Amino acid sequence: MEEMKVRKNQIIELSIKDLVDKFIAAQDVAKSSRQIYQRELRQFINWLESTDRIETLNSLAREDILQYKRDLIKSQMSSYTISSYITVVRKFFQWLESEKIYPNITQNIKGMKKPKGHKKNCLTVDQIREALNSINREDLNGKRNYAIFNLLVRTGLRTVEVARVNVGDIRQKSDQAVLYIQGKGRDQKDDFVILTKEALKPIRDYLAARGDIIGEQEPLFISHSNRNYGKGLTTRSIRRVIKGILKEIGLNTTRYSAHSLRHTAITLAIKGGASLQQTQAMARHSDPKTTMIYYHNLNRVEEGAEKKIKI
């Protein structure tokens, strides 16, 4: 304890920002995770500054972390976001304690309970067809947008995965076209989704319309605006494209977004008879329990006890 008290003063000698930098440098995680840690600890630092706690950092206690959590809840952030912020703060104080700089005042402070089910709605098959039919494919933007929407709803890819894809990532595996991807939290393109003929053809049509010789290292989906021509679409741009298509068919609520297409693909795969293992592989869920949520939700609706009530 004496050693801890002496070294506790280091949190005064070093600014909180310096400590955060040292903490991040010490983490054996992917670059994307480091960026998340940096962003989410910036939120914590901003809160410390706004509440004048940064001036009394050496006396920061467990109650202060609980107040931070309460303030996050008041801000109406999602439970996922709040849990992520709290988790990173816990990791930070665990590291401070391991370095004998400051005691871990976050012990037993929990994140938020995950909500049951999913926050985004799925699309029906009719809605998917209406959305695809609403896209004007006479120009490059239309061909691209059609290919993206169609790809998402047939593979369950995340927007970040689509943004990372290059032309050369379309390959053949056992006579089957596949798309190699860099999954969530991964450092390399070491996973793939299957490209059925229906998923591949719009992509081929779009690439053919781009013309010229397209290098394998070029982004699969690019901007065709004068300002950013040739640059790969960002996740924000992809989300905006999908949101625009959904709005076009009247699905203009927060319950529908690009992530809805991922939920839709997984749900349709299960309805089509895919096994748990097959669905988990397509969705790239690390834990089968995550995949099981989809099965549970479908069974709950299709076999609901309420349907047995006869009045």
Rank of each mutant, 00 (worst) to 15 (best):
D191M: 01
N46W: 04
W47A: 00
S75V: 01
L233V: 11
L123E: 03
C122H: 09
K74H: 08
T81P: 03
Y68F: 15
T106V: 05
T291R: 06
V20Q: 08
S59L: 09
A209M: 06
I24R: 07
N133R: 09
A30L: 05
L207F: 04
D191K: 06
Q280W: 11
I11C: 04
V178R: 03
F93W: 10
L179N: 01
E55W: 07
A61R: 13
T124K: 05
E138T: 08
Y295C: 05
I214C: 01
K5C: 00
T106F: 11
I222G: 04
E306W: 12
Q127A: 08
N252W: 03
W47T: 02
V193S: 00
E13I: 00
G183A: 04
V167D: 07
E198F: 06
K31P: 09
Y37E: 14
Q280T: 00
D18N: 12
E138N: 11
K271W: 03
E306N: 06
R53C: 05
N133L: 05
N150F: 08
F92V: 05
R239D: 14
L48V: 05
N9R: 12
I11Q: 06
V6Q: 11
V162S: 02
G168M: 05
S84A: 13
F23E: 12
R39W: 07
I73S: 01
V88E: 14
W95E: 07
T159S: 14
N299Q: 10
K22Y: 12
F221Y: 09
D28N: 15
S59Y: 06
I135T: 05
W95D: 07
T234S: 14
C122P: 00
Q176S: 06
G185P: 13
I54M: 03
F192N: 01
E2A: 06
M112D: 06
Q27Y: 12
F192K: 01
K114H: 09
T196M: 07
I249K: 05
I311Y: 14
I86V: 15
S59R: 13
R70M: 11
K8R: 15
R42T: 15
Q27E: 14
K74M: 09
V162M: 01
I309Y: 12
M77N: 15
E248G: 09
T253W: 11
S32N: 15
V162C: 01
V167Q: 07
Y68D: 07
L151D: 03
A199T: 00
K31N: 13
L298I: 13
P288G: 08
I249M: 04
T264P: 10
A131P: 14
S79G: 03
K22L: 12
V89I: 10
I148N: 07
S275F: 11
I36G: 07
Q43N: 09
S260Q: 08
D21Y: 02
